[in-house]
Design a protein around this nucleic acid. Structure first.
Length: 279
DNA sequence: AAGCGCACCAACCGCCTCTCG
DNA sequence: TCGAGAGGCGGTTGGTGCGCT
């Protein structure tokens, strides 16, 4: 037995929304608020699927939507976040007030992919396009044991400073505008003789299990301590709190009153990224 | 002016996760 | 603990507009 349809398809309109349908939906939500999407069409007198109503509202009718072209700054934020989160469009949208996941997804596929390609960067991996020719290099920054990468974000006005730490006493630090560039690997167990670690022109591979969690300092991390004290896992935007807090990514709301930046973005409060895992 | 191809984006579809009884 | 219903997400599709020939 298959899944029951979300609505009675035989009596629902499909395709583009008319002005009258938009007006009905807007006035109903103004009067009754969002939610109960399945029962909304009937209550609002719309011959639409509840999902369709929700999508129309979220992606087009919501009053707080920002229409118009994406700015350079928004572009860079999307690229940064995509390099960290992958195709988690709703999470990315949560960092861009007034933008929807659908809009960002479309924008990514039509503009940013091409933009990255023109820069010689693979939009899927955020690595140089010719990197695929040399998979052996990937091995260098992949630990040979299964570990959980812990990623911390440092506040920065100019660029995201990202620290990737791994269990097994291996740490990787990366500081670049796109989480891509010079990566320094300090392996306490297997350092170079000069103790400077291995410098690679690479992006760390985040395709494995990804965890974002509070920084955990080792004694060997002394140079990082000052910076990490100011680290934040802050994500707060009053317009998206509920959205993010309800995602399935394990992000929990934090009621602290401090104000932090996330990836160099000004925010007005805090989201606790204690755990954010991608499998 | 007509035809064609391409880019853009709104909307749909199916699956997954969460919530609640 | 389990199952059903509802909400949410990401991938994909299809309509439309625009530029080029």
């Amino acid at each position: 037995m298959g899944r029951s349809p979300c609505c009675e398809k035989a009596h629902t309109n499909k395709g583009a929304w008319t002005k009258e349908e938009d007006d009905r939906l807007i006035s109903y939500i103004r009067a009754h608020g969002e939610g109960s999407w399945r029962s909304l069409p009937k209550a609002a007198g719309l011959l639409r699927c509840g999902k369709s109503c929700r999508l129309r509202w979220i992606n087009y009718l919501r009053p707080d939507l920002k229409r118009g072209n994406f700015t350079e700054e928004e572009d860079e934020v999307i690229i940064k976040l995509h390099s960290l989160l992958g195709n988690k469009w709703s999470l990315i949208a949560g960092r861009l007030p007034g933008r929807t996941d659908n809009e960002i997804k479309n924008y990514w596929n039509t503009h940013i992919r091409r933009k990255l390609m023109s820069r010689g960067i693979d939009p899927a991996t955020h690595r140089p396009l010719n990197d695929a020719d040399n998979p052996a290099q990937d091995q260098e920054i992949q630990p040979s044991v299964a570990v959980t990468n812990t990623i911390s974000f440092a506040s920065s006005a100019s660029a995201a400073a990202v620290v990737v730490k791994q269990e097994q006493d291996t740490s990787i630090t990366s500081k670049s505008s796109m989480f891509c560039g010079v990566v320094k690997i300090n392996n306490n167990n297997n350092n170079n003789e000069d103790g400077k670690g291995t410098m690679l022109e690479h992006c760390p591979d985040l395709n494995l299990e990804l965890t974002i969690s509070p920084p955990r300092l080792n004694e060997s991390d002394e140079p990082l301590k000052n910076m990490e004290r100011s680290l934040c896992f802050g994500l707060k935007n009053s317009s998206v709190d509920g959205n993010i807090g309800n995602t399935s990514s394990g992000i929990r709301n934090n009621s602290t009153g401090a104000s932090y930046d996330f990836l160099g973005l000004k925010t007005t409060g805090v989201w606790d990224y204690r755990r954010l895992e991608m499998k």
